[in-house]
């Protein structure tokens, strides 16, 4: 059964300052991605651009429940993860533009953001492929007897990759501090979940590994926050890995190149009626944390940040071609940028 209850009590309930920060983060992700889509249409962003519009509650709720030093991994739909972790929107936008000032120096692009200083261990382009990496981050925490927690963030599509079962088994077997966070947006590209998964209750996958799991309303930032807070406590204090399924929806197609013609309008409208930003605003207004004035201030601040990010990216220099082979190895053997990066000269 999906937990939708948002009447949180302390200490589960974030304080007013954190609630506002979460709200601002969600607004930032929404506006950042809307602007990124515009820049993509203008041809300023290449490759694939996967937008998480509609998924902001799942992204922000989960990351806000972690400590800043808890490492996370993600998929190729990860602009929000970087922004929620506090990465500079300027450098994230510059990465999408493929510029030298990008957060990965223009080598990664939209699908491969990383901000290791903020313990964001990256976006990865192969479905499911980053999950064992998070288990490795958890292994390293355990090996060093640290008290942080690793979170693998992946989509519903990844639950049908074998490496998820392998990863969950190892995490459970070795009692590693790992959270398996599946953001179920109900589609693997264009294929609806009930056409890809025999059992669409994805959290049940944990049961096979003796791992606790919860299915949450991924449109409710507070429900996600509370679920991940408990998962983090389990991992941190009891070395008990667990799984969280957050049920959400992406409003746009799989990527900017997806015309999104197969999903029913009625379905989209049903989800959009429960928009995570609007829902959260209502909660915040209701308790007086947010006023029309502060909401306007947040929107204005976000607008400025996003416009500055676009301007910064647009004005940033291209990546020097001399850097073509710079990061293939720790110590390049060759200055030849045309490859043979390890041929001794």
């Amino acid at each position: 059964m999906t937990e939708t209850d948002t009447t949180l009590l302390p200490p589960e309930r974030p304080d007013a300052a954190l609630m506002l920060q979460m709200y601002e983060s969600m607004v930032l992700i929404r506006r950042f991605e809307e602007r990124a889509a515009e820049e993509y249409m203008k041809g300023h962003i290449g490759g694939f651009l996967h937008l998480a519009i509609g998924e902001e509650a799942a992204v922000v709720g989960s990351i806000s429940a972690l400590r800043p030093d808890d490492p996370i991994t993600s998929t190729y739909r990860e602009h929000g993860q970087a922004l929620a972790r506090g990465s500079d929107p300027k450098r994230v936008m510059a990465e999408l533009f493929g510029r030298s000032t990008g957060i990965c120096g223009g080598l990664g692009g939209s699908m491969h953001l990383m901000d290791v200083e903020r313990h964001f261990y990256g976006g990865y382009g192969i479905v499911g492929g980053s999950i064992p990496l998070a288990v490795g981050l958890g292994f390293a925490i355990s090996y060093r007897e640290g008290d942080s927690v690793a979170m693998a963030m992946f989509g519903d599509g990844a639950t049908n990759q074998g490496v998820l079962a392998e990863s969950m088994n190892m995490a459970a077997l070795w009692k590693l501090p790992v959270i398996f966070f599946v953001l179920n947006n109900h589609y693997g590209m264009g294929t609806a979940i009930d056409r890809a998964s025999a059992d669409t209750d994805l959290f049940k996958r944990a049961e096979a590994h003796g791992m606790p799991a919860k299915q949450l309303d991924g449109m409710s930032v507070l429900a996600v926050y509370r679920g991940v807070l408990e998962a983090a406590r389990l991992a941190r204090e009891e070395r008990q890995p667990s799984m969280i399924e957050a049920r959400a929806y992406r409003y746009r197609g799989h990527s900017m190149s997806d015309p999104d013609t197969t999903r029913a309008d009625e379905e989209k409208e049903r989800w959009e009626a429960r928009d995570p930003l609007v829902t959260f605003e209502r909660v915040l207004y209701g308790e007086g944390t947010l006023t029309a004035e502060t909401a306007e201030a947040v929107r204005a601040s976000v607008e400025t940040q996003v416009e500055e990010a676009v301007a910064f990216a647009d004005e940033s220099p291209p990546v020097p071609e001399a850097d073509l082979a710079r990061h293939v190895y720790a110590h390049p053997w060759s200055e030849d940028p045309r490859g043979s990066a390890v041929v001794p000269r």
Partner: peptide
């Protein structure tokens, strides 16, 4: 560490641990 028969899983685990600074 004895692993299960999960080559993709434990090679991936090794990569994550290496990214965290261990030398698997």
């Amino acid at each position: 560490v004895d692993t299960p028969i999960s080559e993709a899983g434990f090679v991936g685990l090794g990569i994550g641990a290496a990214m965290a600074g261990l030398r698997p």
